[in-house]
């Protein structure tokens, strides 16, 4: 039993994970790796949820269990109100795998057409969506080239396009910006924000903390398959003992006056730069702490001290 974990049953949760555990076994059924350990979390409708963690912390494993590609050793998953192994849920999900596992002998057009057919879309709808998506991911110049000729970033782009072919309600992105150039990264982040504006839910994992910080509403940090931190990005990164004042440019006299006022109230001016910690700091601190205090898990309501 995991300490005090309870998930508020809100009607608008899109993903619910309870006590999820995954043990990879070898051919003989012997346990090899405990990739995910008693993970419980919830993703609400309309939010961008980020899964963070060092390499091998179980992010991809968690996402694959959500999709029914892997079977949980223990625990329960509800996704869009359905079981993970229910294929009908996939009608409303878009998934971008860690590496784009696509058919390399198809070109971009054929790829999107193929996945469109799997959703039983009519030819007209397929054509419309495929034109729009290829345009969106900026592959118009290469739409008739076979994917085996694509560069890594181009493959990621077409992967992203296939994830959105069905106009999904829930988009699951495994490291969406990996391999993308800065411009592409920017575009992907804009796209993710746009998806949220359209009322979609996004679950993503990434190593690029800046990306996560830029787009995610809530994050979870995994380490060794265990949940270490969970919460709103704003809350997590807000520095508790400080107040930030941003004013128009003050001349030195005015600044001295302000400082005097602060002194009068027993406060001092620490710095005039941004007081918001960046995610990198939080991330590193969490990992450090997890190493120092193995077994400690996230408890609901807690906000890490930064």
């Amino acid at each position: 039993m995991v300490l005090g974990v309870s998930i508020s049953m809100s009607a608008e949760s899109v993903v619910e994970i309870r006590n999820l555990t995954k043990i990879y076994r070898d051919f003989w059924g012997r346990a090899k790796v405990k990739a995910v350990n008693s993970l419980s979390l919830e993703v609400k409708k309309g939010e961008i949820f980020g899964l963070l963690g060092p390499n091998g912390s179980g992010k991809t494993t968690t996402l694959k269990m959500l999709l029914g590609l892997l079977f949980p050793t223990e625990g329960e998953i509800k996704i869009l109100g359905k079981q993970a192994h229910d294929v009908s849920k996939n009608e409303r999900i878009g998934y971008l795998p860690e590496e784009s596992y696509l058919y390399r002998f198809l070109n971009a057009d054929e790829t999107l057409d193929f996945y469109g057919r799997l959703f039983n879309m009519s030819a007209a709808v397929r054509k419309e969506r495929k034109d729009k998506l290829i345009e969106m991911v900026g592959l118009n110049y290469a739409r008739r080239r076979q994917l085996k000729e694509y560069s890594k970033g181009m493959t990621r782009r077409i992967g992203l396009a296939q994830a959105l072919i069905n106009d999904p309600e829930l988009v699951i992105l495994d490291e969406p910006t990996s391999g993308m150039d800065p411009l592409g990264t920017r575009e992907v982040k804009d796209l993710i924000l746009k998806l949220r504006d359209q009322g979609k839910t996004v679950v993503m994992c990434s190593h690029l903390l800046q990306d996560v910080q830029d787009v995610c509403d809530r994050i979870a940090i995994l380490y060794g398959g265990e949940l270490k931190v969970l919460g709103d990005v704003k809350d997590l990164l807000q520095s508790k003992g400080e107040t930030q004042l941003i004013t128009s440019k003050l001349d030195p006299a005015a600044q001295a006056e302000v400082e005097a006022v602060l002194k009068k109230h027993g406060a001092s001016l620490h710095s005039s730069s941004s007081p918001v910690v960046n995610l990198e700091e939080l991330f590193l601190r969490t990992i450090e702490e997890s190493k120092a205090r193995p077994g400690r898990r996230y408890a609901p309501g807690e906000t890490p001290k930064v």
């Binding site: 294929v87 996939n90 998934y95 795998p97 596992y101 996945y115 799997l118």
Partner: peptide
């Protein structure tokens, strides 16, 4: 793993 992408469709 190209089949994986396929089976994440309906």
């Amino acid at each position: 793993r190209s089949l994986h992408t396929v089976v994440t469709k309906p």
